[in-house]
Amino acid sequence: MDNTKLYVGNLSYEVKEQELQKYFESIGEVLHTKIIFDETSSNRKRSKGFGFIEMSSEESAKKAIEKLNGKEFMGRNIIVSVARPRAKKDF
C-alpha cells in the first residue's frame, strides 16, 4: 500500500490545484496534486470539494496528516487522510 497518497476533503469549491499544492509544500515535497471536478452536472467547472495529494515520502505524508488535518484552509476545515484504493464497480 502506498502511504504517500493523501485524500484531502472538505475543500472550498474555489480552491485551485496550485493553491492546494503550495499549502502542502509547507510540509514537504509534493509530487502530484489533483482536485476532482463534477463531470456529470451542468456546472463542470465546479470542484466536488475533494482531491488528492501525492507527497514525496511516507514521512512527509504522515507529517501532513498530523499538521493539516482539521486545519482551516481557505475558509474550511480540511480533512487529510491516507487515500484508500478506488473501489471496483460491479457493473
Rank of each mutant, 00 (worst) to 15 (best):
S41A: 08
K48C: 07
E39C: 05
L68Y: 10
K67I: 14
I53G: 02
S56Y: 08
G70P: 00
F50R: 13
S41R: 05
E59A: 15
K63P: 09
E66V: 14
K48Y: 12
S42N: 02
F50P: 11
K45C: 11
T40F: 10
S56E: 11
F52L: 06
D38I: 09
R46Q: 08
R44V: 06
G70Q: 10
F52H: 06
T40R: 14
S41N: 01
F37L: 11
I65S: 06
N69Y: 03
E66R: 15
F52C: 00
L68Q: 07
K48R: 15
A64C: 04
T40S: 01
E39H: 02
A64I: 12
S60A: 15
S41M: 03
E66Q: 11
G49L: 03
I53E: 03
E39P: 13
I53W: 10
I36H: 03
F50Y: 15
R46K: 15
I35Q: 00
L68W: 11
S42P: 02
E54I: 09
I65A: 06
K62N: 01
K62E: 06
I36Y: 14
E66C: 08
S60T: 09
F52K: 09
F37D: 04
K62A: 07
M55E: 10
A61L: 09
T40E: 14
G49N: 08
I53V: 07
L68S: 03
E59T: 14
F37W: 02
F50K: 12
I65N: 05
K62Q: 10
S42A: 14
E66A: 15
A61Q: 01
R46L: 13
I65W: 01
G51S: 08
F37M: 14
S56W: 01
N43H: 13
A61T: 08
S60G: 02
N43D: 12
F37R: 00
E54S: 13
I35Y: 10
I53K: 09
E54K: 15
E58H: 10
G70Y: 08
R44W: 11
E58V: 15
A64W: 00
S47E: 01
E54P: 08
R46T: 09
S56A: 15
A61N: 00
S60V: 02
R44I: 06
F52E: 13
R44A: 05
K62P: 11
D38H: 09
E58C: 04
K67G: 02
